[in-house]
Every structure is written in C-alpha cells, then in structure tokens.
Design a protein around this nucleic acid. Structure first.
Lengths: 236, 236
DNA sequence: GGGTATTATTTGTCTAGTTGTATAGTTGTT
DNA sequence: AACAACTATACAACTAGACAAATAATACCC
C-alpha cells in the first residue's frame, strides 16, 4: 500500500528538520550511517534522499567531511497545524453528546468483571457519539449495573449527561479508578459514525468509574478519532 | 484431481515449517527465487503463498532484504488465539531498549517551548527503540537541553536508560508534568522500525519530564504499536 | 612549535542480490 | 466466452558488502 518510496519520505523528513530549524545553515547533518540507523534503512536509501536534497540546493556533501546544510528550506509548508484539534483531559467530560441507543441486556464477561457482577446479570448500555464543533470526535459505550440503577435509562433519555443521570440515581460523585489506552484501526461501522475512512487510527479508551465507596458504577469504552483529538493527562 | 491451488499447498507447507520450528521468529526464509526452484513453480506463485502468510501475520517482508518470520504468536493450531498484551505503566518503564542514534543539534520551536529554551539552542537527541521480548513496541525520541547536561550523551551511550543518565548528570529524580496522547497512522519509516505495515495505528505520546524544582529536563515523543501495547493509567 | 606519518571517519562508487510491481501470454475449468 | 491459476519477462526500489578517496584527529619525531 505504500505508494511513496521510502527515500522520498526520508527526504521529506530531512527537509522538515531543516525547515523547522533543527538543522541550520552551516550545520553538519548526522552521518549517512547514523541516518540510516535512525530511519531503519540501508545507507544507499539515505544517500538517495540526500541527493534529492542536494539537487534542490538544501545541502551539499563533502567527501570525508560530511553533509552540510547550505540553505534554509523555503518551499516547505510549515503552518499546517492550524486544523481544529480538540484537546480533552483523560477524566473525560466532553461537552456535546448525541444518544445513539439505550438498551438493557445481559453482561458479558469483561463487563461483569469490571462492574463486579456475574456474567449474564442485566446491564444498561448507553451508546453515543461525542461531538465538537458539530464534528464527531468519539464513539462511546457506557455500561451500568441495571439492578442498582433501575431508572437510569429514563434519566439518560432526558439528559445525555452521564454525570447528571447518575446523580439522579443517587450517585453524587464518582471517580475514574482505571484507564487503559491503545491505538486501533477504525472498523467499518465505527468509521461510518465517526466520519472517517475505514482503517483510520482511533484512540481506544477503556475506563471504569466508581462511587466514593469504591463500587464500580460505569464501565466505558470510547473510540476517539486520532486526527481530531489529543488526550492530555494532567498529573497534578 | 487436486482442487487446491498450488500456492495454497505451498502456503500450508511454509506454515507448517514455521509452526514446527524449522524457521523461528526473526529467521529469514529462503529467497523467493530459491523457494520457486525447490517447489518447481514460478516466482509469482511463491509470492502468492507468501502474501497469504503475510496477511495472517506469520511473516514480514522487507524489499531488498528478504522475508522474515514475525515475532507474532502463531495461530497454527486453529482457534488458539493467544494475544498477549504487553502492559506498561504510564511512567514508561520498559524492559529492553536499543539506541538508534545520539545527536546534538538545534532546538525547533516546539522543543524550545517545552524545555524552556530559545529556538536554536543546542539540544541532545536520543533516538531509540523500546523492546519487549525482543519485539519492537515503541519508537521514541527524547530531547534534552544540551547546555545543562553537557555529558549526557556519554552516559546514554554507556547505559540506554534515561533515568540512569540523568542521575549521573545530577538529576536525582524527575516527574512527568504533562502527557498528551493521540492515535496516528504509522509512517513508512516508523513502520520499518516497528515491524508493522505502513498505516498501522500507533499510539502517539508527547511528554515532558521535569526535575523536583519544576525545570523541564526531557521532552519525549513515543510511537507505540497499537496491536502490541495497552497503556494503563494508574490514578492514585 | 612545527611538520609529518598514522589512523579512524566519512562520502563516493561499484557489483550483486532480493522483493515489489507491471504487462503479457498460456492453460484448465465452468 | 469468461474466469482463475499459473508462467514469463522486465524493470523499479531497496539491501548488502566491499573498496576507493577525501577529510579530520591524533601521535610522533625533529
């Protein structure tokens, strides 16, 4: 699937290094051997990338001495970071939400273990979409113990907020006791909801929230669109 | 009347070779030319068999180098899906590390802002690979203020550990003051190092570590392979 | 101090081998 | 007639290793 030759992507990376000031005019670049190590390719592939830079007048090589930056890259698009990029904290209160489905069903093994139930016990399931600027940024599924919160779905149907719904069920406050994060490729249905192409990288978050007594009240999965979101962990 | 295509029987034979240990993880298979000779077929037929193995994650080809057996758990005995998730703590303690390069260069804007320097100030750059059981799970780059730690690269070249190197430069302890996470698609060169295909989802982590006085000492980027790693956040 | 081999490092060049891809043709089956 | 499996050939992209040529750093001798 990789249409672009490796040497071109290396050349682009080196151009960026020069354009963003990591190597300045007169500086010596790392040796070809070092560059081939950092990029994980053969020295000849690096040489092809360097000869591309040399042709464009960005660098010039001296046999026995090294490769030196001769000019600043002018044609490199730097200001590409302007895209709207939502940044949220890991504890995860997201403003806009849209309810996709509210169901009650039997808990599977993972859900039961997370919530301290037995597999097959009834759970409420809240599927929804997190929005920012009218754009979907996350697809989530929250699972709650149904026997403890019989009226939760009613509250959720009136107000999409999980915090609010739990409050009306007697849980004044809750804290996140565990979070697990990894990166995944978007499945076809996820891609549809999140308005990205299938296979786009998504940040997969698995979390458990518990009441002040330590009893788990919510088991939540979320798939965030990597392009549109950065999780920030504030360790105070 | 063999209804099964030749390529499938070749694929089966190679799968058995791997499953029964005749080729082990990291080994290079015979070249396509050799395989086509021993099986008495055209090279393209062998290629079809190999692409079947590659799709199932058993092998991994590098253009110009050869076809290598992946370190992935084999699923040759059917239905035995053994998927071991390496779990590490958010503070970043990982079993093995491999140094790819150690350099000193000028800081770009982002690095300067993170470390409290001016753009162009010298920084030490440590490129490396995080391993678990010999398998690459993360590609990282750590940036340090060079003027404050003139001898850091010497320490790092002797011992890959960042913690150890900072200690020998007078930083007894440091804490993570900021972490940002998102999901990205692996670039061509990242994919080479991490032994995944280009575009595979990677967990991108940006972090800043500071000494007890609050002065930043390290600005680190890491790309984790989504398939092989789950970040667990311990909120204490 | 100054000049000179010596040695290690680094770029330049060459040859050979391997995988990736594209095009075209042949054979067997439905 | 259409399709899938396989063959044949050619070239591009990348790897591997070796050696030559220029440079830089060091040791050494006078």
């Amino acid at each position: 699937m990789s249409k672009t030759p490796i040497w071109k992507s290396i050349a682009l990376s080196l151009t960026a290094d020069i354009a963003e000031g990591r190597y300045r005019a007169g500086d010596r670049l790392p040796t070809e051997a070092q560059l081939s190590a950092t990029h994980g390719v053969n020295r000849h592939t690096v040489r092809r990338a360097l000869s591309d830079l040399a042709e464009r007048g960005l660098v010039h090589a001296r046999r026995g001495a090294g490769v030196f930056v001769s000019a600043h890259a002018t044609d490199y698009p730097i200001g590409k970071r302007v895209r709207y990029h939502q940044s949220i904290s890991a504890s995860g209160k997201i403003p806009g939400k849209r309810v996709l489905a509210l169901n009650t069903r039997a808990a599977d093994e993972a859900e039961a273990a997370a919530l301290g139930l037995n597999p097959g016990d009834p759970v409420h399931v809240y599927d929804g979409l997190s929005l920012a600027n009218g754009q979907p940024i996350g697809l989530f599924q929250s699972v709650f113990p149904a026997e403890r919160f019989p009226d939760l779905l009613v509250s959720l149907s009136q107000n999409a907020s999980v915090t609010h719904a739990l409050q009306s069920c007697g849980v004044a406050d809750y804290t996140r006791i565990s979070t697990r994060l990894t990166a995944r490729a978007a499945s076809a249905t996820q891609a549809l909801h999140l308005q990205v192409t299938e296979g786009a990288p998504v940040l997969h978050s698995l979390g458990i929230n518990a009441d002040p007594d330590g009893r788990p009240v919510e088991y939540g999965k979320t798939f965030f669109v990597g392009e549109r979101l950065t999780l920030t962990l504030n360790e105070t």
